[in-house]
Amino acid sequence: MGRFLVRRILQGLLVMWLVTIAAFCLFFIDPSGPMSVARRIGGRQATTQQLHRIIHDLGLNQPLYKQYWHFLWGAPGRPGLLQGGLGRDYYFGEPVTHILYQAAPITFSLAIGASVLWLAMGLASGILSAVRPRSFLDRFFTTIALFFYSMPTFVLGLLLLLIFYFDFTTKLHLAWFPAAGYVAFSHNPWEWVHHLILPWMTLAVVSAAAYTRLSRSSMLDVLGEDYIRTARAKGLTERRVVLRHGLRAALTPIVTQFGIDLAVLIGGAIVTEQVFSMQGLGFEAVQAINNQDLPVILGIVIVASAAVVIANIVVDIIYAVLDPRVRLN
């Protein structure tokens, strides 16, 4: 297991390195020269003088490999990526890391809460459907899953807002759900949950639908195997058969899918943050694009990718725990 872990971490580092190269290429390379790059960073309104200053500050005139090195390690006065520096936001001069530091907890609360919810809902409904195929319960879950699976996240979010916030509050006079905002867990745990319920549901339901389908089909595959039939013949209770024997095998494709979905999760978070006006990473990213604020976007891309890579490593470890064959590879 140890060797597996080491190998996996090394792979992750390699991928992260490639990601930094990709990000660097995207932002700092332009066929028409350093002026265009500077313009991207400075924004549409930047004057020529400001552009020249940017070129000077960021060393955009230097050969590419040097620029990459500065980006990665840093130059005097400008800590690079590995030292925790991501440049400054070009409008308020605020260090990008600072912005990210404030925005990240919001996104992570959203993401982690939602994923727990969707895994729970998806697995539960999928397993229940698989255990009684073609029953009313099965048809019900499958139809609902299909319905929600076809709905974009933001549509769901807005509809939820419309019904639960607006209609409830104004027509039913039940101010149960807030419209927007975020309250930190450290301030007030109950309010934290209170404000996150609708966003969590928005983000979770669509994915839960996908996981219902996936776990239903995976579970059905496993329950059809001979060894399950043997377990039943041995006299084990149905519950034990399903949960202890069936689930373990059925979980593997789900874990794989979850790993892939982690990257999508951030995207879903972006949309949800927009709908509910929560100032997480996604929201900041969209702001940044409206302001043409490249350093912020660059920072978010790198941080988000790092989070995905780390989460993927965790997922792979879980996978290895579930399926010992993987460790031997």
């Binding site: 932002f27 990257a263 999508v264 978010i300």
Partner: peptide
């Protein structure tokens, strides 16, 4: 394989936002 790994690690929506900014 490496390209696939990188592609799957970068959140696509974020990248789209970034690319649009660029």
């Amino acid at each position: 394989g490496r390209i696939i790994d990188v592609t799957l690690s970068i959140p696509f929506l974020l990248f789209a936002v970034a690319l649009a900014a660029v």
